[in-house]
Design a protein around this nucleic acid. Sequence first.
DNA 1: TTGTATGCGTTATCAA
DNA 2: TTGATAACGCATACAA
Lengths: 384, 384
Amino acid sequence: MKSAPLQSGKDMPDDAATNTIVKRSSSKSDAVTMRDVANLSGFSPATVSIVLNNAPLARYIAPTTKKKIEESARKLGYRPNAMARFLRSKRTNSVGVMFFDITDPFCTPILRGIENSLYQASYVPIFTDAHNQRNRFERYLEMVLDRHVEALIVVANWLFVDIHLLADFSKRNIPAATIGWELPGDTVSSVMVDNEGGGRLALEHLHKLGHRKIAFIRGPKTLIDSGPRWKGIQKFAHSVGFEIDQSLAMQLPEEFDPNSGFEGGFRLTEELLQRRRKFTALLAFDDLTALGAIRALTKAGVKVPEQCSVIGFDDVAMSALSAPSLTTVRQPLEAMGNLAVNIVMEGINASQEKRDWTITHHRVAPELVIRESTCAISFAASDD
Amino acid sequence: MKSAPLQSGKDMPDDAATNTIVKRSSSKSDAVTMRDVANLSGFSPATVSIVLNNAPLARYIAPTTKKKIEESARKLGYRPNAMARFLRSKRTNSVGVMFFDITDPFCTPILRGIENSLYQASYVPIFTDAHNQRNRFERYLEMVLDRHVEALIVVANWLFVDIHLLADFSKRNIPAATIGWELPGDTVSSVMVDNEGGGRLALEHLHKLGHRKIAFIRGPKTLIDSGPRWKGIQKFAHSVGFEIDQSLAMQLPEEFDPNSGFEGGFRLTEELLQRRRKFTALLAFDDLTALGAIRALTKAGVKVPEQCSVIGFDDVAMSALSAPSLTTVRQPLEAMGNLAVNIVMEGINASQEKRDWTITHHRVAPELVIRESTCAISFAASDD
DNA sequence: TTGTATGCGTTATCAA
DNA sequence: TTGATAACGCATACAA
């Protein structure tokens, strides 16, 4: 018994057993074409096309004719050939969907949102994943361009990509939108969470709970979210006269593995703990960082939230399931995916009707989700 | 200032602000075609085609000609039109990738594996997500068929789909493979983890650690994995003369939300606890169930792993990050994705060369991953 | 060694 | 109310 040849990538599993082996006869039953329908129904391909597409001219086709043609099509199981159709109509009904790293838990809900809205419009996503590599991104750009996608959606959260990469798209007037990241200028629409508002929300929450000794783990500088979130934090602090203790403010290193946030949060929190400077709350850059921080705190015998509250950002799936479940600032990820699709669809329609369309930069509102990892400060915690 | 029209799905975010508004001129610069290259280089389209595709006949083309053509192509930024190419060659360089529910954490690594292998082969995935709905699945099947994908990969872990749905594919000799689920018979190849072996591995681990009072949370009956895992458990139990206490064996209800496992694990464990029958270890159907169980145990004051070991199945991303981190039976998900691509690629190649190819059912080996949620039985735990 | 002609399956224009 | 016919961009058989 042989198994299918594995040109073994990095880690092929032991392909223990393979059972059935069956030859397939290559009796390829050729796909049924419009011509077939025309023949069976006794009308010309042109008429068939008009009827089946419900084209404007269909108004003038005799009902009986329509019926016959539709019947024939059904009987033969006719399905139009999307590629041939494209060649005439220039419409592929597909959009390129480019992720920078799909293993980032932040991406899954966005993908769901994009897919769902696309589906409603009878479009398919051509899915690509750059693995955080620029050349891979470029290669994929070419591939989706070759396929004449009608639009492009890029999901990323850093500044990896400059305008030049997307220049081909604007040159060809292909609508594009970015999610979680935005290109300066007016070439590409974008959808981002209001990071500054989110930062404010997070600190406000801790502050209202009575926390005054607050540690911070800031995001990597290359992430576009880092700056605004910190700014929101600062602004809120200023507005209530709260002074940020810089010695309690740590910063995540530049790392592009999406799961490195956990490790980073863990490390920095341990470091924080070693400094023996008291804090009763910790505001983390994102959920994974927060989870890592909680881990470090717990390991050091600090109870969350009783002795130290922790708040994250994003609300990835994991956050609701962790112990304690995580208080966080939620990004409406799925809705952001929907929105991005709406944006490019608007562009597609406009382009179709030879209208101009607008490039817009959207900011969606984050939402505070209060779970178990934060609580009002206790006297025990504040005192000792 | 207006924002792009939102035909508001269920939960559109407050689309707070939208800044820039810029009209785009519709100066669509028409794509450059082979004809253009032919004109610029002074040769015929045929020659250009031969050269650019490095067709067999390219052997006879003068080097200087080649150079000129390639130069012209580069200068014009020529890119072949994938659709037009398809119409001749019948090759779309795309494969349909159908998930049953992408929000299942089990899916992400598989998607990564599929994408990566496809990329190596210069294929693009057409991504679809059935949301666990049969009609949606059917609709998507039609859509990918219309697009003439060269192969199909279906990721699911239950028996939702019968052979008839995939009949069109075998009829047209389109290679297909399923991951995490297998169709009886010889129409579709499949990749699955060896669930029985995995079940054995899990119980063996607990048994070796000295546990004898073991609770079980079995999977929903409709999931294809449930039966074999339980069988593996039973077989191992039998082989070492260990008797499974049926009053400690719970069963997850039928539920198709992938995150319901957590809730289910939580509930059933609470129920288990209320029965006041002692157990020192718990073997859960999958990781989410295990996480739910740990949650219930912790809540009830039972320490994991000191007082109760817990083991899961799958090794989803979350499992390494939970507290305590989860001992589990790992499915090589990414590799399974790779493997599925290799399988269908083999089919594609065979089909191309008009050879027959084989349908194979693959079983990949699971791997025990020991983390913090299990430990050797302590006397304290076994006694009281 | 290169060019001409044809057809892939549609749709759109025009004529009937 | 319907049918020829051409064209979309490319690849191939055949001619030159």
